[in-house]
């Protein structure tokens, strides 16, 4: 009887422990959102989206940051998705299942967990100095591509693995070559998963700050990039710059910037979820 009681009490206790843990997360999130909205919402208007940075809070805008982030995305997306999907195709469809492949596999997964600042240092060494790109848009884009590459590889591999072997065999059995099978059967079936993973990876890239600081994104810039070797800034860099100023008004401007960044992130994640749901469970 007493043992039964203990089990029931334990059962209840754990339920409340878990509810408490979840509430903590919810509270932290609500406080964060409340603070940002209350500080930033008042400064969020069309001019804020259209203006370049300025020495006065009421004249400062996020335009250079938004455009910089957009140009970064336009470079990062094709670079990282092409290389990432190709790597995933090689690992899943071509590579022999041996120790060497498993070694690479493990390391790709480890790379996905490497702190972003390490990728920043890598970018600084390679792209900024070794390739002499300097503190330019292309150096930033390549560094960020490297950062999200492992995530895209892992997500694409999972999507490719999810394509049933039966339809690969059906294609091969009709005299299709391996490449025809990959191009016409495997990739179309894996595209939803690949896209979902890629968008989530890109939304990570759009919010990253540390590597961009290291490879020299500018804090205050009054033009938008017009070539691969232009100076550039990005939304998180602008926000970081504003939060590090002593005057209180800058904190409100930073809040407005964070709202813009959050909205863009939420939009990207919603698109990813929408794609996933739209194409889910077709087999």
């Amino acid at each position: 009887m007493s043992r039964m009681r203990r089990r029931i009490i334990l059962n209840q206790t754990f339920k409340y422990v878990f509810i408490f843990a979840m509430s903590l997360a919810l509270i932290a999130l609500s406080v964060l959102i409340y603070r940002i909205l209350s500080q930033g919402l008042g400064h969020l208007n069309i001019d804020f989206l259209r203006q370049y940075p300025a020495p006065y809070p009421d004249k400062a805008g996020l335009f250079a940051g938004i455009m910089g982030s957009l140009y970064l995305m336009l470079l990062i997306a094709p670079i990282s998705i092409t290389i990432g999907v190709s790597t995933a195709l090689y690992l899943e469809e071509y590579a022999a299942k041996n120790k060497f492949t498993r070694f690479i596999q493990t390391n790709v997964q480890n790379l996905a967990g490497v702190p972003s600042i390490v990728f920043g240092l890598l970018g600084l060494t390679f792209f900024v100095y070794l390739f002499s790109f300097g503190y330019t848009l292309i150096a930033g884009a390549l560094t960020m591509s490297l950062l999200i590459l492992p995530v895209i590889v892992v997500a694409s591999q999972e999507a490719i693995r999810f394509v049933p072997n039966e339809i690969r065999q059906a294609s091969i059995a009709m005299g299709a070559t391996k490449w025809q099978t990959i191009w016409r059967i495997v990739l179309p079936a894996a595209i939803p998963g690949i896209l979902t993973g890629s968008i989530l990876a890109l939304s990570r890239a759009i919010g990253e700050t540390a590597p961009l600081i290291i490879v020299g994104a500018a804090a205050a810039i009054y033009t938008i990039p017009d070539s691969l070797t232009s100076k550039y800034t990005a939304m998180p860099i602008q926000i970081y710059n504003w939060t590090s100023r002593p005057q209180e008004e800058w904190q409100y401007i930073a809040g407005a910037g964070i709202i813009v960044l959050l909205v863009i992130l939420l939009l990207m994640n919603s698109i990813a979820i929408w794609i996933r749901n739209k194409f889910q469970s077709r087999y």
Partner: peptide
């Protein structure tokens, strides 16, 4: 070849 389980392409 025709397989055991119907395996049409999606």
């Amino acid at each position: 070849m025709v397989f055991q389980k119907p395996n049409p392409f999606p």
